[in-house]
Write a protein that binds this DNA or RNA. Sequence first.
RNA 1: CGGGGUGUGGCGCAGUGGUUAGCGCGCAUGGUUUGGGACCAUGAGGUCGCCGGUUCAAAUCCGGCCACCCCGACCA
Length: 565
Amino acid sequence: MRVSKLFGKTLRQTPSEAENISHQLLLKAGMIHQVAAGAYSYLPLGWRALKKVENIVRQEMDDIGGQELHMPVLQPLELWQQTERDQAFGKSLFILSDRRDRKLVLAPTHEEVTTELVRRNVQSYRDLPLLLYQIQTKFRDEPRPRGGLMRVREFTMKDMYSFDTDEDAMNVSYGKIVGAYERIYQRCGLPALIVDADSGAIGGKESHEFMVIAESGEDQILYCSNCDYAANLEKADSIKAENEKEEMLSLEEIATPGIITIKDLAKFLNIPESKTLKAVFYSADGEVVFVVIRGDIEVNEVKLKNVLKCHELRLATEEEVRGAGLVAGSASPMGLTDIRRVADPSITLGANFVAGANKPDTHVKNVNYPRDFAVDIMTDIATANAGEGCPRCGGKLLFTRGIEVGHVFKLGTFFSERLGATFLDPGGVGRSIFMGSYGIGIGRLLAAAIEQNHDEKGIIWPVSIAPYQVHLCPISTDDSEVASAADRLYLQLQEEGLEVLFDDRTESPGVKLNDADLLGMPVRVILSPRTLKSQSAEVKRRSEKEAMIIPLEGSVERLKAILSR
RNA sequence: CGGGGUGUGGCGCAGUGGUUAGCGCGCAUGGUUUGGGACCAUGAGGUCGCCGGUUCAAAUCCGGCCACCCCGACCA
């Protein structure tokens, strides 16, 4: 490709709207263009890189026996109502009406349609296992698109679905795909960490995310300094420190004028926050729920949402709290019967807690569970923190941020049961198909690759996903010798199957070299009167500081060798 | 949705009531240049986000709306 003909210009100043490095560089390099919040055009260079990522993903999916197909983005809303995922996705679901006023959705993912398709085509255990996938556009009306390609409302996703006869077989498929994912990230030049994750709106019981460790990442990760435990913060468990052992004492009311928060309470009584019980009220799909947890620990709302099996969870309003007969600031789990009560096991890690009295300006000392109150659900709903104990080995948990570049789910029979996707086993018995769902955001992966591979001058593409492999950059192009040598080399490289970006512009050296650094092709080749004197070219890897001079004779082979290194 | 911010040629910005709205970069034409964002000359390009109001006069003041960005609650 000749730069003089290339659509898309590099910018000298970074557009002010970009905060993220990948966003800045993609804009500055003329690889993407924003159309609306979370909707981008890919210009030719950006599109080539995206296609490279896509092809790597495609190869790895094919290699494990995946079959590529294509399903529609446009889908009837009814299909989503059958699985109640119209509720689960809520406002993130793009819904539109057709001319007959039928409701259609722009699909954010394809479990329903795939399951429906498989239901029609699979009857026997002999048809399983099955791996189907597509690489296709998804729509999600994100509350807040951000970071350029990091989080957009229209994006290309590779989504694969596995179909198996039972749980063990599902786990085998799952493992295969996890292996393929690891190879994909490796090939894209991205070290990715696999972490335990919440299933969110996709559903299912077990799920893992692939994270690229990056300061700019949206996700928070806890990982063990000792073993290989790693989890998204919203899923992470931890071992909390236990309070000192002590004998249970009898209840005692105390006056606490004006004390509302745990912090103030602890200060007022001169005790650690871990000696208090915190009451928090939530509205779960409209129902007020009482939550109690040790005072020093935060509620993990994702865990709570899963426990309550609700679609919408938020803190209850003051009116809702009052309406439930509770006194905010001094609420108590004691004596409550007509609201659902959820407790975290941390309330048993100690004794003689201070809790609310459900009377204004009053608390109660020496509260002990289960002596003094009962709960409906006792389960882990605690937020884990760095420094706490690893749930697997007890080691110390550490914190980092990451970019989620893939997510895999064990769905079990959630979709197949609701949509009637069954098969006959060898004994002629009808059974629900065990499914898995596996997604990679292609554009996000591209952005993550740039976040990981750049310097102050620009992008440093890994060879595998670079738009072009070689950036041919003649200097002094009005020198006819240089111009013709460059033309010859350009043709020769292409004939040898190399992908070449040829800067044939009559720009000054500074402009061309800076553009080459910004665009970031893996190898830069310079021809100039100087190099031609010795019938040579200067070759420099974008990732390295030093250039080398190689003879023009045999340069193609040298370049190939450098690229495959 | 809560909080913060920004809208002025392609990009970065200036312009707090008073001529035909400026500057840098980029772009076009001609010329001189060519190993790290060259120089000279000439030129094109703007309903100042939109609607309404105040005023003799609005990019500038007032009201409403919209868009975009950032921080949080959601996700590949």
